[in-house]
Simulated assay, not measured.
Amino acid sequence: MSSTDKVFAGSIPKLYDEYLVPMIFAVYAEDLARRIAARSPSVLLEIAAGTGAVTRAVAAVLPRGVRYVATDLNEPMLAVAAQRQADDDRITWRQADGMALPFGEAEFDVVCCQFGAMFFPDRVKAYGEMRRVLKPDGTFVFNVWDRIEDNEVTAEATAALGRMFPDDPPRFMIRTPHGYHDKAVIRSDLERAGFRDISIETRTEISRAPSAEYVAIALCQGTPLRSEIEARDASRLQAATDNVAEAIRTRHGSGPVEGKIQAIVIEARR
């Protein structure tokens, strides 16, 4: 993993929340929220909350008495999330590293994490931390992206950037968001951390955006892919965005864009 893969700062958090969340994250946030609500937790911990896509979805379906702690490694992301839900006193926002959680043992009924596990340098260690803070029989609910080939517009954007920078193609999307999809490896990592009753399923959805330009801004400017582009040529961020938009437009037309997205959803018991 590159040193910039986990950096969501500058203008990225706002663009991430405005563009990327509705395009690809919201539908999976609603799925996680349903799964979490079915567990009827009284105390819930969210890891890698980002700008609060899951936090908002879960808060909408849980009763008032629930205590909800939402964490992220990146303070700028949490700031956006906290501003969006400033009036919900059930939620405590806290900067935290998923590899070293600042909580005691057996504090939470459920731990959840949307599209964050791919960013952990040592996943077994991170999963061990999540198991440690779960109550006996508590549940860890999370998801990860499937192969980039099963996520249409992201694959098309990555290919377009590869043509623009043929000598050093940006590989953030392949390397990190779509780099942890082997179900056997995921199961093994969880078992090594002590989890049991592991359920792993593939969930296919449709990504929707109003235009090709919207997709290009979401991916090129609302993720750490931006840092990769600027590292190659800081003056070409807009050109890269335009190239991706043209590639998406060529494939999907000049109107609204729809494309297959696919994730892996996992539930495991302590």
Rank of each mutant, 00 (worst) to 15 (best):
A100Q: 13
A33N: 03
A155D: 14
T241Y: 00
L219G: 09
G10T: 10
Q83R: 15
P166R: 01
R123Q: 13
D150S: 13
E246F: 00
R175S: 13
L15M: 07
R251P: 01
E46N: 08
E105M: 11
A160K: 06
G65W: 02
P22S: 04
A57C: 12
S199P: 05
A247L: 04
R249L: 01
D97R: 08
E129F: 12
I206W: 07
I12C: 02
S211Q: 01
V141Y: 05
T241R: 06
W145T: 06
A48V: 12
S207H: 12
V111I: 08
A96Q: 10
R232S: 07
P224T: 01
S2W: 08
D5Q: 07
L190I: 06
I264N: 05
E149P: 04
A60N: 13
R192C: 14
R236D: 03
L62F: 00
K183D: 11
Q95H: 11
A37K: 14
M99P: 08
R196G: 12
M164W: 04
V110D: 04
G52R: 09
R269Y: 06
R187S: 13
G104N: 09
R196L: 10
E18A: 15
I248P: 01
V111R: 04
Y19Q: 07
D189L: 11
G222A: 09
A38F: 02
A216C: 03
L73N: 01
V58M: 05
D197N: 15
A53M: 09
T202H: 12
Y19E: 06
L237R: 04
A157H: 03
V61H: 04
I206G: 05
F25A: 07
F165C: 03
L101A: 09
R236N: 08
A29T: 05
P256V: 00
V265Q: 13
Q221N: 11
V111H: 07
E152D: 14
A82W: 06
D197R: 14
R269A: 10
R147K: 15
Y180C: 09
L44S: 09
G128D: 08
G255Q: 01
T55L: 06
R171G: 10
D150P: 04
Y68F: 15
A9D: 14
P22K: 02
R232T: 01
V153P: 05
A239L: 08
R251W: 06
D109A: 00
P76D: 07
R249I: 00
D182Q: 14
S3H: 12
D242M: 02
D182A: 15
Q221Y: 06
A268H: 07
T139M: 11
T158R: 10
M1W: 10
R90Q: 11
A82D: 08
D233E: 12
D150H: 13
A60Y: 04
V27D: 10
V257C: 02
V265W: 06
R187M: 11
A268S: 09
L225C: 10
S11M: 10
R187W: 11
D167Y: 00
E75A: 15
P102Q: 05
Y28W: 05
L237I: 05
I24C: 08
T154M: 15
V66F: 02
Q85S: 13
C220F: 02
K125V: 15
I206V: 15
L20N: 03
S40T: 12
F108D: 03
A33H: 06
G259F: 03
G162A: 02
A239Q: 10
K135E: 03
V111F: 09
Q95G: 12
G65M: 00
A234S: 13
H181D: 12
A234Y: 05
A216F: 02
